[in-house]
Design a protein around this nucleic acid. Structure first.
Lengths: 127, 127
DNA sequence: CGGAATCCTAAGTGATACTG
DNA sequence: CAGTATCACTTAGGATTCCG
């Protein structure tokens, strides 16, 4: 493709930043495990915590709040005693999970390649 | 393999963690802007810095090192005076960029929806 | 049970100054 | 030009304690 004097970059800084922003939102340590854990069924707080595994109470709370704020997760409180709170993916959340899994496929497909590169790079640095 | 009473979750913790790990690698503040900036042509350090815009020298160095380590970017030093270093995407990097842009499309498509949710959530929290 | 509040550490990020 | 080194600040995350 010939490059004219100065074509539109096909990427504007704003877009990249938003893209990076959303990727880091879902790329944090717990968002994806939580979303994937909710993929098949709604779960209650401590159920979810057990399924996800290894997540602190605080981080689960924060992650769920962020997901709820973004409209990815719906929080339903059942006025029982003791209180019962259920978390479920929204349509938007399901849609995001699908995209995430797509990237997951890419990663699995290229994981060996990436690991090999890292190995080589680190070896070269160490040597 | 015997069929368990419950179906396999279709997600193993290890996978999620790797997925999240890679997403946070490319979801950091600068990786994507850098990759996208390199999409059409190889650039030198300070060229790249200008194109990306707003990135500190240190973060550009770190981002490029990480990308190089992962085999996404190839670093070529031309033994001239003054030194000239060129950065270019590898095939792997181009492939990643394509995936990233796909997510970008998703974000653009759902951005208004997400923003509306956030607005509503924040308003409710403030009220 | 489902959180909130608090404290602490590590990592990401930016600014600045210096070097080959 | 293309970095490295250092410092300061902010945020992510974990551990612990307390509450309705």
């Amino acid at each position: 493709m010939t490059v004219p004097s100065r074509p539109a970059p096909a990427h504007e800084p704003g877009e990249c930043r938003q893209l990076a922003g959303m990727l880091s939102r879902i790329g944090d340590r717990w968002t994806l495990p939580v979303v994937v854990s909710l993929r098949e069924e709604a779960l209650r707080f401590n159920q979810l915590r057990r399924v996800v595994g290894g997540i602190s109470q605080q981080m689960l709370t924060r992650t769920l709040r962020a997901l709820e704020r973004d409209g990815m997760v719906r929080r339903t409180v059942h006025p029982t005693v003791p209180p019962q709170v259920e978390y479920a993916l929204t349509t938007l959340g399901i849609s995001l999970a699908a995209e995430a899994l797509r990237i997951g496929s890419w990663i699995q497909a290229h994981r060996d390649e990436i690991d090999a590169h890292r190995q080589r790079y680190d070896d070269a640095a160490a040597g």
